[in-house]
């Protein structure tokens, strides 16, 4: 299967996205922002539809739309205990508004169903060299920002009030992290599609957290699992002809279920 350029690109793209999704996803799950991950990738879909309508590459539209939504979600005023009281409402409404825009963009671009299918379910086998370069750029930027932000982000995520009391600029940290998450979601959507992009972010990270691992081991496992899911998905798709996102979604749920079983078994 590696004799084809498109397969080699797919494997490299999946690897880049997996490292990003495993890391960002771990923080998203730690901060209980699974809904944000779900919403951001769908918002990216609307951006991609808009970009196609205007004649730009879909990834650029995904990045711009996700980034704008990330800023809006991250900038929400925090409640007394350091967590935005209306977070889910804000995310839900930003999602609703952008999906509405997405429907309009699809209508205007006059390429409705085929375009929607590609954007929603992804086209990992269609990644060209240019897209691969863009994905690498997004990954380096996101991981660099996360490395810079990491310790304050971890403190603000585990003990928001204590962190604020010690002088951590929790809101700034939250905004920058949501921007990183938005970029990561856009990158994931390129591989797994808008509908299942969050499965790469959520599944591996939730599994790592379920196992009760500390931050370093948890992020390492999350990245490893994301890599296993995306590469495994590509191989199984090659063999079975079932779409890659199908295997990724199924694998994510299965890994979490296994972690849950293992945890129950240990507590017996």
């Amino acid at each position: 299967m590696f004799e084809f350029d498109f397969m080699r690109h797919a494997f490299v793209g999946a690897a880049v996205v997996s490292v990003l999704a495993g890391t960002v996803g771990w923080f998203l799950m730690l901060r209980r922002q699974a809904f944000a991950a779900h919403a951001l990738s769908h918002i990216g879909f609307s951006g991609a539809a808009g970009a196609v309508w205007l004649g730009f590459p879909p990834l650029s539209g995904m990045v711009v739309f996700s980034l704008m939504a990330g800023f809006v979600i991250g900038a929400e005023r925090e409640g007394e205990r350091g967590v935005p009281a209306q977070r889910d409402s804000t995310i839900g409404l930003v999602l609703a508004a952008s999906l509405g825009l997405g429907a309009w963009f699809l209508h205007m671009s006059n390429r409705g169903s085929s375009l929607a299918t590609t954007l929603l379910f992804g086209d990992v086998l269609g990644i060209d060299l240019r897209t691969l370069e863009a994905l690498c750029g997004v990954a380096v930027l996101c991981l660099g920002l996360l490395a810079f932000l990491g310790r304050r982000l971890l403190f603000a995520s585990l003990a928001p009030e204590v962190a604020r009391a010690r002088g951590v600029p929790a809101r700034l940290v939250s905004v920058v992290f949501m921007a990183v998450a938005a970029l990561a979601c856009a990158a994931c959507a390129e591989v797994a599609g808008a509908l299942l992009a969050f499965s790469l972010m959520i599944g591996p990270a939730a599994t790592a957290l379920k196992l009760g691992l500390g931050p370093l081991a948890g992020i390492a496992l999350s990245v490893g699992l994301a890599l296993g899911l995306s590469w495994g998905g590509l191989m199984l798709s090659w063999v079975t002809d079932a779409p890659v996102p199908f295997w990724i979604g199924l694998g994510a749920a299965l890994s979490y279920a296994l972690a849950d079983l293992w945890r129950r078994f240990r507590s017996l």
Binding site: R151, F155, P215
Partner: peptide, 14 residues
């Protein structure tokens, strides 16, 4: 892990 995060949670970078 919660205590380690508080110990160096005011620093930037790795």
């Amino acid at each position: 892990s919660h205590v380690r995060a508080a110990v160096d949670g005011l620093r930037w970078g790795l």
